[in-house]
């Protein structure tokens, strides 16, 4: 299913490059330029594809997100700025 979702996302990107309404001044419903209408529909289609993505391709290997360094993150600061800073890597040769 995940592969289908990625194909759909690729399809959205391809459909975004529409040549077919490039110079067409036709008005949908009598007021909406067809080129604009098409891309507005593409926005709705994107939302549908992303709904499918979170439903069927949501990453299952996500970490729970529990911090390893609670002792640092819970230090209090009265005025609200950080003491948290991950360790400086050693041996930087750049």
């Amino acid at each position: 299913m995940s592969r289908v979702i990625w194909i759909l996302i690729l399809l959205l990107i391809i459909l975004h490059q529409d040549n077919w309404f490039w110079a067409d001044p036709h008005l949908v419903f009598g007021f909406m330029p067809v080129g604009l209408f098409y891309h507005a529909c593409l926005s709705v289609a994107a939302a549908i594809v992303w709904w499918l993505a979170i439903r069927y391709a949501w990453p299952g290997d996500l970490d729970s997100g529990e911090p390893e360094r609670l002792e640092v993150s819970r230090q209090k600061r009265t005025a609200g700025l950080s003491e948290t800073h991950p360790s400086t890597p050693s041996g930087d040769m750049a």
Partner: peptide
């Protein structure tokens, strides 16, 4: 989502 997960795990801001 990935960066959120790494940020939570390793304490990045």
């Amino acid at each position: 989502i990935r960066l959120w997960s790494l940020g939570r795990k390793h304490g990045y801001t």
